[in-house]
């Protein structure tokens, strides 16, 4: 690789002048940036606007479902390539109880890859990506967004009016912002063995199945 080379005096001088030239060019470029405004921002507190407001409308943040316009068609559940969405339906008689109601509408944000495939088949635009993206949870379990908070009180499916081309929808992001606040909840207790034994001591910890 590094075979010895014989350099003439001219080549030697050219080397020196070439090096000086590239120093000149390179150093003037880097110096010019000393006198320009840095391009980076000081996220999150020293921003002219909160980042959420600067994102484009198509931004794919946390998913949000407006249960008031959800028709319980399960198209999003089918479209999801990684089974992030879980919907449990119960059938009623249609008189005392609604014909179709949702006991559960969970989106596991910890698993979601924000691809947007679930949004596309939704007939009423109930499931949408919001521009929300900030949030931190204390535990993986907390990351699941439960749009039906109480399974004992199932949500009736929305019947879209015939021929409608627009559906009432809550402002985008309002629901999910409320749900994200719950992420700060403490993590569930460490799983205990056979229900009653006390939490294992330090010596045993390594044997506890996760």
């Amino acid at each position: 690789m590094s075979e010895p080379t014989q350099k003439s005096l001219g080549g030697w001088a050219r080397d020196v002048s070439e090096s000086a030239r590239s120093l000149w060019e390179g150093m003037s470029v880097t110096l010019s940036y000393m006198f320009k405004k840095p391009i980076t921002t000081q996220y999150p507190d020293r921003m002219p606007l909160p980042v959420v407001h600067t994102l484009p409308t198509r931004y794919r943040g946390f998913l949000e479902v407006d249960m008031d316009t959800c028709t319980a068609c399960q198209a999003c559940e089918r479209a999801c390539p990684i089974d992030v969405i879980n919907i449990d339906l119960i059938r009623g008689d249609g008189v005392t109880t609604p014909k179709t109601a949702m006991e559960r509408f969970d989106i596991d944000i910890g698993k979601c890859m924000f691809c947007g495939l679930c949004v596309e088949p939704c007939p009423t635009g109930s499931i949408q990506h919001t521009r929300e993206f900030e949030g931190a949870a204390m535990a993986f379990d907390n990351l699941t967004l439960r749009f039906v908070p109480d399974p004992a009180k199932p949500y009736p499916a929305y019947k879209p009016p015939k021929g409608a081309d627009a559906y009432p929808r809550k402002p985008l992001g309002e629901i999910v912002r409320k749900l994200i606040r719950e992420w700060d909840a403490p993590a569930p207790a460490f799983p205990q063995r056979d229900g009653q034994t006390p939490r294992p001591g330090p010596a045993e910890v390594s044997h506890v199945p996760r």
């Binding site: 994102l55 484009p56 198509r58 931004y59 794919r60 890859m113 924000f114 691809c115 947007g116 495939l117 990506h129």
Partner: peptide, 12 residues
Amino acid sequence: LEELCGARLTYN
């Protein structure tokens, strides 16, 4: 690209 499709890296 984010403006175009909503994501910065995994565009889909």
